[in-house]
Amino acid sequence: MTEYAESKQDHFEGQMPRHVLSLSGGKDSAALAIYMRDRVPEMEYIFHDTDKELPETYDFLARLEAILGKPIVKTSPTDTFDHWLSVYGGMLPSNHRRWCTRMLKLKPFENYIGDGPVINYVGLRADENRTGYISTKPNIKAVYPFQEDGLVRADIIRILEESSLGLPPYMAWGRSRSGCYFCFYQQKIEWVRLKEQHPDLFERAKEYEERSLGFGEQFYWCRSESLAQLERPERVEQIKRNWEASEAKKRASRKNLALVETLGGLELEDDGHLRDGCLVCSL
């Protein structure tokens, strides 16, 4: 056991905890896994697979697994998204009713952990003002190595580049977060690009909306408009124009923009937008 791992065990008063790092398919948790690989060799890497992830996410995790040199355990829930959708009476998840996070991410995580002592490594950066709700079980102690060591976004990008893993491939076409392809925290420009990159997944997301009407509920992933409305050519062009104008305004207001932030779609990442998401899905 390394000196770093031993330093984290005081919380459990002599008990031998497991060291667990949850991966979302996002850049921060991937960078943390690489950062901790040699500092905590006994680390367990886990991924809560909802079966509704982007294909790019699975590819990214497979390449990360090769770099880590040990398997990433999938804590796949016994009951699928469609099962829980039925349990919840056809009520699709939203930011006000995040049963998807609870039943497909947190519950599998806690089932995997059990009741023994665990140190859970969370990829919150030093330049973020977010709190990390992962679990409230008393046997789990959350630690934040990036915050402890003062690592910020540029450091995370450097770790990924130096490891040869790079950024998650979905960022290249303009998606800012990991998680289910129909995540309700997506921006409208991300829905437009999902349709362009994965029209089949866009159609499945649209089908979920349409089926919800059969349960007596009118619910849209985008809250204010349906995907059928959003995909109309004139609406797509309007969304693109609005996004381009917003990005131009943000770029004009930022000084000393690093070159790396102008490449690979990183300018798409709106920290305020991401702050609203579920950390277990998007870190």
Rank of each mutant, 00 (worst) to 15 (best):
A258D: 12
P145Q: 04
E210T: 05
Q147G: 03
P168E: 10
F215D: 10
A248N: 09
I239E: 01
L124H: 05
Q186V: 05
R130N: 04
P199W: 01
F184T: 07
R235H: 12
E207I: 13
R125S: 06
S224E: 14
Y144T: 10
F202D: 01
N139W: 10
N139I: 13
D155S: 12
K240H: 00
F202I: 01
Q197G: 02
E190W: 01
M171C: 10
F184Q: 07
L124M: 14
F215R: 11
S164Y: 02
A228N: 13
S226A: 03
Y133F: 14
R130Y: 11
F219P: 00
E162W: 02
A205V: 04
D200N: 13
D127A: 06
E203Q: 13
E210R: 05
N129T: 10
L160N: 01
A126H: 11
R125P: 03
N256M: 12
L227K: 02
W191I: 02
S178P: 13
K240L: 06
N256L: 13
I159L: 09
I239S: 00
Y220F: 14
F215V: 07
T136E: 10
W221D: 06
E225W: 09
V122G: 04
L227I: 01
L160P: 00
K249M: 10
A245P: 01
S226V: 02
L194H: 05
I140F: 07
C183E: 08
E148T: 11
E217N: 10
K141R: 11
E207H: 05
E190S: 05
R158N: 09
G216H: 08
P199Y: 04
Y144A: 02
R241C: 03
K188T: 08
P168F: 08
Q229R: 09
P199T: 09
A154I: 15
R235D: 02
P199F: 03
Y220P: 06
G123P: 11
R251T: 08
S212Q: 06
T131L: 09
A228T: 13
D149K: 10
V236P: 02
I157P: 02
L194S: 08
G179D: 04
R254C: 09
L165N: 03
L230I: 12
A258R: 14
L165Y: 02
M171G: 04
Y220C: 15
L213G: 07
A248S: 11
I134M: 13
E161D: 15
R193G: 01
P169K: 10
S226D: 05
K240C: 04
A154D: 15
E225F: 10
E237S: 06
G150P: 04
V236F: 00
E203C: 03
G150Q: 08
L230A: 11
N242G: 02
G166I: 10
L194Q: 09
A142D: 11
L167R: 15
N256F: 11
A205H: 01
P233H: 06
R177G: 01
K137D: 07
S163T: 05
